[in-house]
Amino acid sequence: MNPILLAVIIVAGIGILAGLLLAVLSKVMAVPTDEKAAAIEEILPGANCGSCGFSGCAGYAAALSEGKTADTGLCNPGGSEVSAKIAALTGGAAASIEPMTAVVFCRGSSENANKKMKYEGVASCKMAAQLFGGEKSCIYGCVGLGDCARACPYNAITLCNGVAVVNADLCRACKKCIAVCPKKIIGLLPKERANAAVLCKNHDKGASTRKECAAGCIGCTKCVKLCPSGAIAMDNNVAVVDPEKCTSCGACAEGCPTGAIALLKRR
């Protein structure tokens, strides 16, 4: 037989055989796909942050489509917009989610905070925090090695002079930074309302706080007395602002002797 023809026949024959086998297999082994879940997953932001309480966006989409949950408002990064889209798809009620942003409650930058040692280990807050609570004298404050910045899927966190700072425009409140912070000093605050916040979590008595950091809350309770709407309360030597009551008048920030209170202005 013509060798060229033979080569063509053999290669084509093997190709057709393999193709047929695959076609049969893909029919027999077909996996039923959940189209609704796939459509919902398409809407979700895809950050797989887990702030909804499910294992990533696919998990939440599957739970919504299988009816395990009817709550369309669990996705913090997506906000009201995503909730409305999902509700249109599943026929559930849309939830309004107030946009939040993460805030690092510490002002212990290298000018403000004193250091008790020079840390030259692995650049990880988690590891540094295990060594006498980190480089800074204050054991409550930001370690400043950027675990949160690395965890942030939106690149919203930068290290600024030894303190992590959240860019509210980029933050979508997925809470990943809150989970990795070994000092638990990151919290969520409303994004679009202005409010005051005490950027300190130092629970020591005033005198020792002063020695550790120039911008720490010394627990003088001056802001509690100054606040006209009663939004500030003391919690174990640290003033805490209730964002629900705060009218952002700025009296506390002006009166604070150490400058630990900041008026977070939003759009």
């Binding site: 053999i10 290669v11 393999a18 193709g19 082994m29 996996v31």
Partner: peptide, 28 residues
């Protein structure tokens, strides 16, 4: 059949089909 020169192309064809098969089985 004196077609040893076709080894590479035929083998790649077969391997590609087999990998597809493994993929289908794993997916299931």
């Amino acid at each position: 059949n004196g077609l040893a020169y076709l080894q590479t192309i035929v083998f790649i064809l077969v391997i590609a089909a087999l990998v597809q098969m493994v993929e289908i089985v794993l997916k299931k």
